[in-house]
């Protein structure tokens, strides 16, 4: 053996031996002290997307899978990114009844398009909502409304948002309800709504009615008519704009009565499930 190899080997061999001993101890320990896992766990875990988004309310997909195995009461429809497909798989693996997943869809609470509102200034700065918003709330006369430079369009991972006629519109059939756009909008115009809901308020202007009316003919003037007609008491005008409490807005005996009674047409009927946009009255 050449002399040069001796110091190398005297260094390598002890380290390798220590490594092998450690590995051996770990193997023995993991075999001896293995904690018995539910045999359904790998199958259940396999169904879940593995994005660890936490939308189900558990700590990651592993946490949800564990809860599903341990507690038969855990609903199988909590995985929102996985939607109905995952829920169906889960119900097959666990042998329970299939439960429909209530997906959420992003909705833009503004309908101040080019026909219904005007520009108050000419803006030639950076083409971004965040930048435009710093300059006196953007070029539009309504400082609460959609700025129209498409920060949400750029942020949307599904390319579900487009600027149509100066206002961001979400295509519900492409929207996966991730909520990225809700954080991007400088005016906080976008919110996530369960796709079972049928009516949306498309205005966020918090000014008094007369002021709102001056800047946008589609704006909510806070007349409280919708409050009065809603059979479930789900609509409340707060800060001069109608807000729907979606916990109360459930099985409506007179669907769309709020939209029909709205004087400015800012409450609209939509079918978020089938993917139709909130249509104008």
């Amino acid at each position: 053996m050449p002399d040069v190899l001796v110091p190398i080997l005297t260094a390598v061999i002890p380290v390798v031996i220590i490594g092998i001993i450690c590995a051996g101890v770990l193997v023995v320990a993991s075999k001896l002290m293995a904690v018995k896992e539910d045999e359904r766990f790998p199958a259940v875990r396999e169904c879940l997307p593995g994005a660890n988004c936490g939308a189900c309310g558990f700590a990651g997909c592993d946490g949800y899978a564990k809860a599903l195995c341990d507690d038969p009461e855990t609903p199988t429809n909590l995985c929102i990114p996985g939607a109905d497909g995952v829920s169906r798989q889960l119900s097959e693996v666990l042998g329970v009844e299939f439960a429909d997943v209530i997906e959420t869809v992003a909705v833009v609470h503004c309908s101040g398009d080019c026909e219904h509102t005007r520009d108050k200034v000419r803006y030639s700065g950076i083409e971004s909502c965040a930048a435009a918003n710093i300059m006196f709330g953007g070029k539009g006369s309504c400082t609460y409304g959609c700025l129209g430079y498409g920060d949400c369009t750029a942020a949307c991972p599904q390319e579900a948002i487009r600027i149509v006629n100066g206002v961001a519109r979400v295509n519900p059939s492409d929207c996966v309800g991730c909520g990225v756009c809700t954080k991007t909008c400088p005016n906080k115009l976008i919110s996530l709504i369960p796709d079972t809901k049928r009516v949306v308020v498309t205005c966020s202007n918090r000014d008094k009615g007369a002021l709102t009316r001056k800047v946008c003919s589609n704006g909510c003037i806070g007349c409280r008519k919708c409050e009065k007609v809603c059979p479930l008491g789900a609509i409340k005008v707060t800060n001069n704009v109608a807000v729907i409490d979606y916990d109360k807005c459930t099985e409506c005996p007179d669907l769309g009565v709020c939209a029909r009674s709205c004087t400015t047409g800012c409450i609209r009927v939509a079918n978020l499930k089938s993917g139709s946009l909130p249509s104008q009255r």
């Binding site: 380290v15 220590i18 490594g19 450690c22 590995a23 101890v25 770990l26 320990a29 993991s30 002290m33």
Partner: peptide, 13 residues
Amino acid sequence: LVIAALVQLVEIV
């Protein structure tokens, strides 16, 4: 090496 293996062992135990 030893610390890494040790921590894993402690975790298993």
